[in-house]
Amino acid sequence: MAKRKSSSGGWLESARTILYAALIAVGIRTVAFEPFNIPSGSMIPTLLVGDYLFVSKFSYGYSRHSLPFSPNLFSGRIFGSLPQRGDVAVFKLPRDNATDYIKRIVGLPGDRIQVRGGVLHINGQPVRREYLGPYLVEGEGPRPVPARLYRETLPALGGQPARAHEIIEATDDGPFDNTPEFRVPEGYVFAMGDNRDNSLDSRAMNAVGFVPLENLVGRAEFIFFSVDGDAGSWWEVWTWPRAIRWNRLFTAVR
């Protein structure tokens, strides 16, 4: 009997340890950092398919979408703050409040956003775009797709400096390269992918549109793992050395 009691106590202790570990993990995921992976090429060249990154949950404060499964416990944000123009952010797709999207915030409340001839305009002014050279988009089809690589510099705002990042364009005459002017409402932001001709984003009003501040999950901070299409299943560790993109590990998202 004593042996049985000891065994039972051991199981209870193990279960309690697992429960505590789960609660700690959920707490960290809710208030600090949450891992995400990149399944599509809409943020190339900043983020590649197969990148795994951490998102800081505290950057913009907390909403119901900070919690697992987005329970409808409260509305708005607690300790809320506006993102900076140029932040790469994860948000819940407004039309279902469930699907995770990751894009770059280019428009803040009150901004006027328009794309003309492939060039982003903010409040009537063209955003500086510097051509860097040709770029081959890989992983989006059976063969690489040619594009053009640019450095785009978003204008300074208040005490925030101008922020530069890279984008790619396949053409300057695609469906989203000439848009009407969008005025971002209060309480919303405007998000675009860095792969400008292959990104479903705020330019598509019927699909994404303006993103409520409440839907922001957090800001992308750094890539902790990255693997290309040569990898097998996650458990096939022998495929990792040739598939891991070593130069992307622990790099900041800018």
Results as ranks from 00 to 15, higher is better:
Pro39Trp: 12
Ser40Met: 02
Arg64Ile: 01
Pro35Gly: 04
Ala32Leu: 14
Asn72Leu: 02
Ile38Thr: 07
Ser66Tyr: 00
Thr46Ala: 12
Ser70Cys: 04
Arg64Trp: 01
Lys57Met: 07
Pro35His: 12
Tyr62Cys: 02
Thr30Glu: 08
Ile28Cys: 12
Val31Ser: 05
Pro39Ser: 03
Ser63Pro: 05
Phe33Thr: 11
Leu67Arg: 00
Ser70Gly: 04
Pro45Asp: 03
Pro45Val: 01
Ile44Gly: 01
Val31Ala: 15
Leu73Tyr: 02
Leu53Glu: 13
Asn37Lys: 14
Leu53Asp: 13
Ser40Gly: 11
Leu67Pro: 13
Ser70Ala: 06
His65Lys: 05
Pro39Ile: 04
Lys57Tyr: 03
Ser59Ala: 13
Leu48Glu: 14
Ser40Ile: 03
Asp51Pro: 14
Gly61Cys: 06
Arg29Thr: 12
Ile28Tyr: 10
Tyr52Glu: 13
Pro71Gln: 02
Pro68Ala: 10
Leu47His: 08
Ser66Ile: 07
Asn72Val: 00
Val55Met: 11
Asn72Thr: 05
Leu47Trp: 03
Lys57Thr: 05
Thr46Ile: 06
Leu73Gly: 05
Lys57Glu: 02
Glu34Leu: 13
Leu48Val: 07
Asp51Val: 07
Phe58Leu: 13
Ile28Asp: 08
Gly50Met: 00
Ala32Lys: 07
His65Pro: 13
Thr46Ser: 14
Ser59Ile: 04
Leu67Tyr: 01
Asn37Phe: 15
Ser70His: 03
Asn72Asp: 12
Leu48Trp: 15
